[in-house]
Amino acid sequence: MDRIVHPGIEKFKQRVYNIEVSSITVGQWNRLLSSRREDSIKKSLQDYLEIREESIDELLD
């Protein structure tokens, strides 16, 4: 969508990017997840969505 220049699409993108999901806008999630900064992504997933990484051994016990 970023390669298409059209006023309606731009309006739609702005509206979607400004929607808040778990205290962060879709635009912020997009930037974070596309940054490939694993530490920041893990921290945000834990802080905002309560998702954490655990070892398989702990999960199976």
Rank of each mutant, 00 (worst) to 15 (best):
D57W: 09
K43I: 03
K13G: 15
E50R: 03
L59F: 10
H6V: 08
I19V: 07
N18F: 15
V16A: 11
K11R: 10
S22I: 05
Q28P: 06
S35Y: 04
F12W: 14
Y17Q: 08
V5G: 13
N30W: 08
V26D: 04
R52P: 09
P7I: 09
E38V: 08
K42I: 13
I9D: 06
I24C: 08
R52Y: 11
S55T: 05
R36N: 07
I41N: 12
E58G: 08
S22D: 13
I19D: 08
I19Q: 14
K42P: 10
M1S: 13
E53Y: 00
S22P: 04
K11C: 14
S23W: 06
H6Q: 10
L60Y: 11
L45T: 05
K42M: 06
D2F: 07
E53L: 01
S22F: 05
Q14D: 15
E58P: 02
H6M: 00
F12A: 02
E38N: 02
V21Y: 11
E38K: 01
D39C: 06
E54I: 05
S44W: 04
R52G: 14
D2M: 14
D57M: 07
E10P: 01
I51L: 13
W29Q: 00
L32N: 10
L45D: 13
N30A: 00
I4T: 13
M1H: 02
I9F: 08
S22K: 03
R37K: 07
E53C: 01
L32F: 12
F12D: 12
V21N: 07
E38T: 07
D39V: 03
M1C: 12
E53P: 01
G27N: 08
I19S: 14
S22Y: 11
V26K: 00
I56D: 11
L60T: 11
R37P: 02
R36F: 07
K42N: 06
D47P: 01
I24E: 05
R3I: 09
K42G: 05
L33E: 09
S55V: 12
R37V: 10
M1L: 15
N18G: 15
R52M: 10
E10D: 13
V26H: 06
E38C: 06
D61T: 01
V21E: 03
Q46H: 05
E53N: 03
V5W: 04
R36S: 05
I24L: 01
G8T: 14
Q46T: 05
R3P: 12
R37W: 13
N18E: 15
H6P: 00
G27C: 05
I56S: 13
D39G: 11
G27F: 02
L33Q: 01
G27R: 03
V26T: 10
D47K: 02
R36L: 04
S40H: 09
L59P: 05
Q28G: 03
S44L: 04
V16S: 13
R52W: 08
E54A: 03
I19M: 03
S23I: 00
V5L: 12
Q28D: 09
R52F: 05
G8Y: 09
D61Q: 15
